[in-house]
Design a binder for these strands. Sequence first.
DNA 1: CTTCCACAGGAAATCCTGGCGC
DNA 2: GCGCCAGGATTTCCTGTGGAAG
Length: 491
Amino acid sequence: MTDDEPNERRTADRDFDVDLDDVLEDEEDDEEGGLFDDLLSGEPIFENKEVLRPSYTPHELPHRNEQINNMATILVAALRGETPSNILIYGKTGTGKTASAKYVSQELENTSRKYDVPCEVEYINCEVTDTQYRVLAQLANTFIEQNRDYARGRIRDIESLIEDAEDDPSALAETEFESVRDAERRLEDLERDLEEMEEVPMTGWPTDRVYSVFFEAVDYVERVAVIMLDEIDKLVEKSGDDTLYNLSRMNSELDNSRVSIIGISNDLKFTDFLDPRVKSSLGEEEIVFPPYDANQLRDILQHRSKDAFKADALSEDVIPLCAAFAAQEHGDARRALDLLRTAGELAERDQSDVVTEEHVRRAQDKIELDRVVEVVRTLPTQSKLVLFAIMMLEKHGVHNINTGEVYNIYKTLCDEIDADVLTQRRVTDLISELDMLGIVNAVVVSKGRYGRTKEINLSVPIDETEAVLQADSRLGDIENVTPFVQARFDN
DNA sequence: CTTCCACAGGAAATCCTGGCGC
DNA sequence: GCGCCAGGATTTCCTGTGGAAG
């Protein structure tokens, strides 16, 4: 039932576009001038779609109380002016690590403001900020910014204090200053500090200079700084553990302030690559976020859907189904939400005012297709060629393709587009890679007398794959190779 | 039971690229 | 700008193997 509909899209296939919202306008509605009318007139399904996006931080995180309390117990030290232990958070994608950590840090900052304890949390996503330099520069700049605000505030306070004191000298009695002169001296200091605070440029400085600027910025006022490093494994992978080493030993040299690190990692084993010293200081406390099971996912979806959808926009089996699908894929809440959102979008496009089970199933297919399209699109050329060869064979009705056949076609394809021809050894590896990506299915079988080989089958929709492959500029003009394939069959 | 196909897939050698210190 | 090196991709060379055919 899902295979029927791509037909009408044939003509537009060349310009393969995966984004749902874009396809939307082309597909239905040929009426001039009424492009958006129909879409608008339908009963909207979403109340607030943002709630379903991964970037949204919810106010409540069902089934994460234990982890959240755990973090809070550790971080409460910051509010007493002590250094909290460093925390390492583990968990697969979509288990609520980032959301929980952000929630806790928000609460921490709120409370610190309430009791007037200086405590700040800095969030850094190491996938974006992925080198030691960038991490330090970003931290330095945010702290510098804060210090400036602080200095300006103090300057204002002192100025008005001096003004008061000129009228009535007793105004100074309750303050730290002994005289107007003293206050003025302090004022000058602050202004000079403000002058000297220099922002770290995006690039150009030696790393140790950035480090010392950062160091001084942190130490400028008394405070507890919590540094949250999301996707910390990416940082370690790309630029080693120097950053972490520097950060974790900072405390012994700071006079006024304290730093504490929260590391968030997808990879349970990433500490294996760390210097033992870093490892022990970073992992003082470890919190694990296990994957959600289907019931927990259902609660989460239930919870979010209240804000996301109009009342009664979901038929009752929608949420359990989304939860079940996502639970099969390692309990990823992000996936579950994505599924629900996509299902809603599909329903919206159907002008339906209720999201049904059917929409969820289609959403599941669509997400899977998008994933495949993305994977295939970003494949290296050689892998694309191998896949192309498999696809051509499949297209001619060959199933259980074996390596030799693929290799032969592959060679002619390479000739055709003037690419390097890899060895068969290498091609078998490429096939295995495609297998691991789930694009093809390859099983080693023995055909007795006729040797031992892989049996390969395409495990993705053939038309879409072809479209994506031909969208590659280097593979675009390959169509006329069909005779080659044909010729091979005749032998 | 032996043979022998048509590869799989391990190990080491080689090529290539980009970063780093000077 | 240059040599050096790490580490990834690829090649070369190789041994291993399940089971139909004989």
